[in-house]
């Protein structure tokens, strides 16, 4: 019978917490940059100008279809040579995940706006509202409500994807876990606890998403706020 020994984990638990903090830093910063960028891409995508729509579309498709690890390696190993810049793991990570998540957020934005029924547009137009007025007072309030669960889900996905940064030696939670596992020769305890830490952070947000989804389904359409 294997003798479990969690003491090794708890001696260096603060390292794991530091890693968790770094994980959250990368996620948070990538989100802060990715969301506005996603909005920009979505607007471009919906634009009626000749080249911008398809170009934005291509960027979105490219970053949604290629694996994040490939993107990360490209940003960390290839880009520095191309533009002659020294790239730290942190910068490479944030750059990769901002753009990658922005592609997904762009689709969330577009889906949200498109999902508001055409009848809402007609109803607002029939009242004599201008495009900006109806966007602001009728369409966006309804669209935003629908997008919130999808946003949170994408953010959770991002949090899970950031584990990749450990591969380019950024000191996130997984990186320290690897480190400790090698030092203490107790990979079983270390990795089990690490998995549990991720679970404890992600699961509540997941639950929140589900509660919000049910809440929005029940309350029906938003009124003109």
């Amino acid at each position: 019978m294997y003798k479990w020994d969690f003491a090794a984990v708890f001696i260096d638990f603060d390292l794991l917490l530091l890693g968790l903090l770094n994980t959250l830093k990368v996620t948070g910063l990538s989100l802060t940059l990715g969301v506005p960028l996603g909005l920009f891409l979505a607007v471009c995508r919906l634009s009626r100008l000749r080249l911008i729509g398809p170009l934005a579309g291509f960027i979105i498709e490219f970053f949604r279809t290629t694996p994040p690890l490939v993107q990360l390696f490209w940003f960390f190993f290839a880009l520095p040579i191309l533009i002659d810049v020294r790239m730290t793991p942190f910068v490479a990570a944030v750059a990769t995940f901002s753009i990658q998540s922005s592609a997904f957020f762009a689709e969330v934005f577009r889906g949200g706006i498109v999902s508001v029924e055409a009848s809402q547009w007609e109803g607002a137009r029939a009242l004599g509202m201008s495009y900006i007025q109806l966007m602001r007072r009728v369409i966006l309030p309804q669209a935003v409500k629908r997008m919130i669960p999808a946003f949170l889900e994408r953010s959770i996905e991002l949090l899970k994807t950031t584990t990749l940064v450990s591969v380019i030696a950024y000191s996130d939670l997984l990186f320290y876990a690897n480190d400790l596992a090698q030092k203490t020769f107790r990979p079983l305890e270390i990795y089990t606890i690490t998995a549990l830490i991720y679970f404890c952070v992600i699961y509540p947000i997941s639950m929140l998403v589900r509660v919000l989804e049910r809440f929005f389904n029940r309350s029906g359409e938003s009124t003109v706020a």
Partner: peptide
């Protein structure tokens, strides 16, 4: 379902590669 949806795949792979062989 809850556990494997809410933990990163990479940690699962690493767990199976480094931790499981011990058990």
């Amino acid at each position: 379902v809850e556990f494997f949806r809410n933990t990163p795949v990479l940690i699962q792979i690493i767990w199976f590669y480094f931790a499981l062989p011990i058990l």
